[in-house]
Amino acid sequence: MPIRILKILIFVAALGPVAWLIRAGLTGNLSANPLSDITNETGVWTLRFVCVTLSITPLRRLTGWNALIRFRRMTGLFAFFYGTLHFLTYVIVDRFAGLDFPHGIVAWTTVVNLAKSVSEDIYKRPFITVGFATWCTMLPLAVTSTAGWIRRLGGRRWSRLHRLVYATGVLGVLHYWWLVKADVRRPLTYGFIVAVLLASRVYWSRLRSVSPAAAPRAAKSSVRL
């Protein structure tokens, strides 16, 4: 199947979770606390797309199917998309909904109070601090995801910058971990996946430094991450 068609299919599939959320919300099929569901689901899907993005290079090395790299920008941008939805949901549902509106909702004080409420919360609650930091690590990667930015930065510098995604994975798991009350099984699962994906990079980079000739050709020939 041509890559272009595959890309369209993956694009549509990646919109599935948000489409499902909207549909379930409209038909009253979320829980009794739909706002909390939207917050949780967008967060979990961010982490899933980060994991998918991080798995592309290891998969490429294992399978030798180099075309996989052509999906990485899209999955990465979807991670940013869900992360941004997650952040906006938090801002609206957790912060905006808890404000006082002394001069009505449409007022300058609302903007000021919201900014204050969000920044105080990021400062005060460690898991929010980490969550915000996670989103911040994705921001420059999303901005510099275009061909123009790769050219402007140069492949090497661009690659180095985009290793920030390792931090996204680690911080995202930590954010999830600090959120749950007692049942850490899900954060633990994501932690394990991210750990394996990062460890595979350490493994391959060691392999390469020990014996450059033995490294798979695929790894040498293109931008690695």
Binding site: R23, L26, T27, G28, P34, L35
Partner: peptide, 28 residues
């Protein structure tokens, strides 16, 4: 009341599409 609001919006907004995507089947 967000849920009622969403439901009300759903009735008007989604009703047309509901037949096509089978939204009723979702309501359990």
């Amino acid at each position: 009341n967000r849920r009622e609001f969403i439901r009300a919006a759903g009735v008007t907004g989604v009703a047309a599409a509901a037949g096509a995507i089978g939204a009723e089947a979702l309501v359990e």
